[in-house]
Nucleic acid binder design. Structure first.
Length: 566
RNA sequence: UGGGGGAUCGUCCAACGGUAGGACAACGGACUCUGACUCCGUGAAUCUAGGUUCGAAUCCUAGUCCCCCAGCCA
């Protein structure tokens, strides 16, 4: 299912270290200036339970970005503490995506599972200090005694077990003597705390499921709270940057650092996660879309995953630019999806080679053009980049133009082809429409036109002007191709606001054009290479293409002030 | 009605007691062999009410609204 152009081991397009400015960078600069740290060490800590999305890209750019800017380092650490949800496929995809984004963790690829033995020892340390106990309550009973947002919790009847009993039970948990869900290790903190995370949080649970890395070595696993801060401490992370919802966990994070003989004391900082209009960035929902087949996979170009964005043809640099423009703050916000498109267009305008392609072909016959004659006309590859040079485009008597570029009875502001109207065919000739040929149903199926031989190359020696320049493809030379047009996956800017995300999925999110016509030079396009189809948008050849059947994805359309005016 | 956070143009982010600025979006114009690009221009904001101060988006007080937390997920 998953077609992916796998990047090389190190980033093909490394991110440049250009400093942004935000409260996180202010804090780091302050710490460095004050000598709190000699250098900065950050980490990007994904759980390998799904593919990375554009929200993760924000965290990646932040963590790796500050490390780069301040001359420190950033670790890639898999937070693999729950084997029931994690898989090797995700681990591989995450490494690939981080590299593609342009970042390099060097030798610092780590896993929470690397620390299972140490974390276990620390758990026994806590038990020995009387600060953790084995609870035999069921999950339901624990929930009932935890209290609510407004009512304090009640102590577990197992809270005062002896150190020896706790130690014995914990060791037997590790040995696998107990079934899933029968016992947990809890910290002994304060069941009446206003912060629910401090009401004797669970530290270890029994999960008899093989782990992608440690196999069956363990059947008890630390949870996030017991693993994260300690892993940070082991790696000497200086600034542990996470999203706002972990703010309530900070007191717990610090409680472990204070009560355990950890080698360093990292500090946690939180920022607001990324939200984008017309987009869902929740792993739970993205997983659902894949599982239920609303999309073709994690790398479906409609998905906000890094793999999907890449496959759609967005360059890593455009994604980085977007993240940079969005900024980092603590206020919840929803970024306009148009800002992402703007970043993509801005980069592609400078870099993408231009070609002509007709998506919805309408046959044009140039009546006064000699049958059998073919001319190779010069076309500029990229007007924004003279070094890109030029190419030849074949012109002949029978051509295709876009159906949208003809109207039998045009409204006032329609500049394109209509009966009697003269337009320019880009890089070719002025042509005038003489007749629209229709089928029995009255549909226009062909245009009979004449050309002005003196306008070869696209300019008339008498200096007369035309209002429109159209793209075109020689019928006899055209390469047939499938083109996939992607529209927003959702019909509303705030999908799921009424409670059902799936109900807001856009039934027209994918338009497949089976028989587009491409100019011959496009046969050399490489998979993943960004090109512009003139007047239409930016496209890239999909990895599903075969020699016999090309497939192009639309990355993003061009701005279209005419369409908007209509 | 517990605990924790947050409110600045339509949107996102700046301004760190001293002229509220940038980007995206919108609108108008110029240019154009892409109705693209580019360029020029226009409109557009400090949650409310008090207070401190020569001066407040920034400090204080009281409100209002929004977000997060009751997994043996992360």
């Amino acid at each position: 299912m998953s077609v992916d152009s796998a990047p090389a081991a190190s980033p093909a397009d490394p991110a440049p270290a250009e400093a942004g400015k935000d409260f996180i960078r202010d804090i780091i600069q302050g710490d460095l200036d004050a000598g709190v740290h000699q250098s900065v060490v950050t980490r990007f800590p994904p759980e390998p339970n799904g593919y990375l999305h554009i929200g993760h890209a924000k965290s990646i750019c932040l963590n790796f970005g500050v490390a780069q800017e301040f001359g420190g380092r950033c670790h890639l650490r898999f937070d693999d503490t729950n084997p029931a949800k994690e898989a090797q496929e995700y681990i591989d995809a995450i490494e690939r995506d981080v590299r593609w984004l342009g970042f390099d963790w060097g030798t610092h690829l780590h896993h929470a599972s690397d620390y299972f033995e140490q974390l276990y020892a620390w758990a026994e340390h806590l038990i020995g200090a009387g600060k953790a106990y084995i609870d035999d309550q069921s999950a339901d009973d624990m929930r009932a005694s935890r209290g609510t947002l407004t009512e304090p919790g009640k102590n577990s009847p197992f809270r005062d077990r002896s150190v020896d009993e706790n130690l014995d039970l914990f060791r037997r948990m590790r040995k696998g003597e107990f079934a899933n869900g029968t016992r947990v290790l809890r910290a002994k903190i304060d069941m009446t705390s206003g912060n629910i995370n401090l009401r004797d949080p669970v530290l270890y649970r029994i999960i008899h499921t093989p782990h992608p890395r440690t196999g069956t070595a363990w059947c008890i696993y630390p949870n996030y709270d017991f693993a994260h801060g300690q892993s940070d401490a082991i790696e000497h992370i200086t600034h542990s940057i996470c999203t706002l919802e972990f703010e309530d966990h900070k007191p717990l994070y610090e409680w472990f650092l204070e009560n355990l003989p950890v080698p360093s004391k990292p500090k946690q900082y939180e920022f607001a996660r990324l939200n984008i209009s017309y987009t869902i960035l929740s792993k739970r929902h993205l997983t659902q879309f894949v599982r239920e087949g609303h999309v073709t996979g994690w790398d479906d170009p409609r998905m906000p995953t890094i793999a999907g964005i890449r496959r759609r043809g967005v360059p890593a640099a455009a994604l980085r630019d977007f993240i940079k423009r969005v900024g980092v703050a603590r206020a919840n916000s929803v970024v306009d999806a148009a800002m992402f498109d703007a970043c993509v267009r801005e980069l592609l305008n400078k870099t993408a080679a231009r070609y002509m392609a007709v998506l919805r072909p309408l046959k044009v016959v140039i009546e006064n053009y000699p049958e059998g004659q073919v001319e190779d006309l010069d076309a500029v590859n990229n007007p924004e980049d003279p070094s890109a040079g030029s190419r030849k485009v074949p012109f002949s008597r029978e051509l295709y133009v876009e159906q949208d570029d003809f109207m039998e009875t045009p409204p006032k502001k329609f500049f394109r082809l209509s009966p009697g109207k003269e337009v320019r065919l880009r890089y070719a000739y002025f042509i005038t429409c003489r007749e629209a040929v229709k089928d029995a149903a009255g549909n226009v199926i062909e245009l009979r036109c004449t050309y002005d031989p003196a306008s070869r190359g696209g300019n008339s020696p008498d200096g007369r002007k035309v209002q429109a320049t159209l793209h075109w493809v020689s019928a006899g030379h055209a390469i047939p191709s499938e083109v996939r047009i992607y529209n927003p996956l959702f019909t509303r800017p705030d999908p799921g606001a009424d409670g059902d995300v799936v109900a807001d999925i856009n039934p027209q999110s994918l338009e497949i054009i089976a028989d587009a016509k491409l100019e011959p030079a496009l046969s050399a396009a490489r998979i993943g290479e960004a090109v512009q189809f003139e007047r239409l948008g930016y496209f890239t050849k999909d990895a599903e293409s075969t020699d016999a059947h090309a497939v192009f994805n639309r990355t993003v359309g061009l701005r279209d002030s005419y369409a908007k005016a209509k």
